[in-house]
Design a protein around this nucleic acid. Structure first.
Lengths: 207, 207
DNA sequence: CGTGGAATTTACCAAGTGGTCAAAATTTAT
DNA sequence: ATAAATTTTGACCACTTGGTAAATTCCACG
């Protein structure tokens, strides 16, 4: 009955868990769950395979923890959309934050995309949480529309289009880079994208 | 030196090759190249694994043929954008065709997405062909802008946004369906999407 | 028919896979 | 320093993987 002391994790545990998660993110985001191997993760992390499995129960657990960690921060920008702000600027802010995330965390975006492509087998619950939060914001947008502050568009598809256009720069980066000439066009693609999306949505959402 | 007669393929060959390609599309589009197995493809096609390999040299060849076939038709809508037509309606037509393809050929879209997520390792050449064609259309759009028929936006990113928003409904269908309430909203998602995208781009591209 | 090529199956690899286990090495606390 | 706890490794294992070879069945044709 005596519960053992909290057993706080040591420095080594912290470091190695981080190393593994980092390597796993790299691998899973590239090949998806089924296409990734523990050997790849082991090599990238600099640890041996049995050593990985000393820190995590198995491949599934590593993947699940990655997805959990991802979803935690993924929805932050959506949460921050505020009913108080000016509609146009709230949406612009949201687009910009999403675009920054695509730029700064492309692997997380690809991990998510991989999961979606496979039909989201591991995150049905989390998708429900997303729905609840989204429904809230949809009401908010509907009110903006009713108040004549936004064009009369379908809010769900508005969010779809924002997700699609911003995450595209992470998920399809290979295509984006292949198509843009090397040099400034390629290098400043995120700035140009920000400008373009700003114009597109500003014009497209004006009442 | 005597070249053998053309050796036209039999009915059985035709049928089985089709069966295999169909099954392979299903599997590859879900799991990507590394995550898919010949056994899965064999099972789905109703043939035995050695029988698959009687018709194709190996996993790589099947995948490559699928990608080749995909790219052949993938660019058709882009090719059809005409300098003669009205800018706004040409772009609207393009968006609608792309959306129809996402609806009718979601597996092809996901196959492409999988390839992109992994950095497009197998289709660097084809991406160059895409770039050539796209550059052509970019000039066209630039002329429309110069003529004052379109807002002054970056044409490359315009195409990125069209690709992203339309393919989203195939690639992220799991998310789209999870978020939309079951019933008409979910069932008519492509019609609603068409309406939304029409408004978004019409408004966003008006000069 | 029956026979020669086409199609299919059976029985296999060798390499790669996720995972286990006990022993060895190392770190930590006393 | 040394015992205890933690960390790491090497040797494995059962199963899956892409692929092969030979034997067998099927089938169109004279």
């Amino acid at each position: 009955m005596t519960s053992k002391p909290p057993k706080r994790s040591t420095r080594i545990q912290q470091r190695n868990r981080d190393l593994i998660m980092e390597a796993a993110l790299e691998v899973f985001s590239l090949y998806g769950f089924r296409g990734s191997t523990l050997d790849q993760i082991a090599e990238r992390s600099g640890l041996s395979k049995p050593n990985l499995l000393y820190y995590f129960k198995g491949k599934e657990e590593i993947h699940r923890l990655l997805i959990d960690r991802l979803l935690e921060t993924w929805l932050d920008p959506l949460r921050e959309i505020s009913a108080e702000g000016e509609p146009a600027s709230e949406i612009r802010k949201y687009i910009n934050r999403k675009l920054e995330m695509a730029r700064d965390y492309p692997r997380e975006s690809r991990l998510f995309a991989n999961e979606m492509l496979q039909g989201a087998p591991h995150i049905q619950e989390e998708l429900y949480d997303l729905k609840v939060l989204l429904d809230e914001k949809v009401v908010l947008v509907r009110n903006w529309i009713k108040a004549g502050k936004l064009a009369d568009i379908d809010p769900y598809h508005l969010f779809f289009s924002i997700w699609a256009t911003t995450q595209h720069y992470a998920d399809f980066d290979a295509q984006v880079q292949a198509v843009l000439d090397e040099g400034p066009a390629r290098e400043h693609r995120f700035e140009t994208a920000a400008q373009f999306l700003d114009k597109l949505f500003t014009g497209g959402l004006a009442p």
